[in-house]
Write a protein that binds this DNA or RNA. Structure first.
Length: 226
DNA sequence: GCGACAG
DNA sequence: ATCTTGTCGC
């Protein structure tokens, strides 16, 4: 059976970890993050997001595969899995990635780039959900967050496309990007195998008339539909 | 000690 | 994330 990604199995890279173990896992994985562009031509981009059912008992993950630059939807999949962990700020990936990986395995082709709902390196230990996914698959990812987890930033100019750096411990960890006028900005950060400037550039390239770039907007729509 | 805290 | 309707503004 053709899976877009091979599943990996490495020590201390599991999912069912106690909070302190998960934190240790993040510190360890953060060393292998690549913040340089490591991809060639982008012809397909995937958007991925998660939602919940039955008072949180079930995690629903949705993935949308889009053709670039047409932004036409080529495929979309939704999977449901038992929720294995509560939401703990800083440990989101351990709650949502297992279901997202199953959704990604439904894809017949491998996307050239993946946009994830949430943070990339804009995380206390530089391992937000987009980065965790990127390192796990060793594939280019971008974090597209709707609110701030950590870091500080100045006010963002109101024109579409303007952005200011998001910094944490004197380090630039992301961009606060105005994707629509008069609308709350997005928190963009590199996930893996991409630099900040390119991450912002690709988000801008996937923008139409909405606040969210199409890949995550479509995935959002599928993951939170009732 | 107190507050903040992706989805 | 989820519980939830209408309503103000571009």
């Amino acid at each position: 059976m053709p899976h877009a990604f091979a599943t990996r199995d490495q020590p201390l890279h599991g999912w069912d970890l106690a909070p302190s173990e998960a934190v240790a896992c993040q510190r360890r994985l953060a060393d292998s993050v690549c913040l340089k562009d490591e991809f060639t031509s982008i012809q397909t981009i995937a958007g991925i997001d998660a939602g919940f059912e039955q008072q949180g008992e079930i995690t629903r993950a949705a993935v949308v595969l889009m053709e670039y630059p047409s932004l036409r939807i080529l495929e979309h999949h939704v999977v449901r899995c038992p929720t294995r962990m509560p939401y703990i700020p800083g440990l989101l990936s351990f709650r949502e990635l297992p279901a997202m990986l199953e959704a990604l395995d439904c894809l017949s082709g491998r996307p050239d780039l993946i946009m994830v709902d949430g943070m990339g390196i804009a995380h206390p230990r530089r391992l937000g959900i987009a980065t965790h996914l990127g390192v796990w698959l060793d594939w280019p990812t971008i974090g597209v967050g709707k609110s701030r987890l950590c870091g500080v930033h100045d006010e963002v100019p109101s024109a579409r496309g303007e952005w200011v750096p998001l910094t944490h411990h004197q380090e630039t960890i992301g961009a606060v990007l105005r994707t629509r006028e008069n609308v709350k900005p997005l928190y963009i950060s590199p996930g893996h195998r991409i630099c900040l400037e390119s991450a912002v550039e690709w988000v801008m390239k996937c923008l139409t008339r909405y606040k969210l770039p199409e890949p995550t907007r479509q995935a959002d729509k599928l993951a939170s539909r009732r």
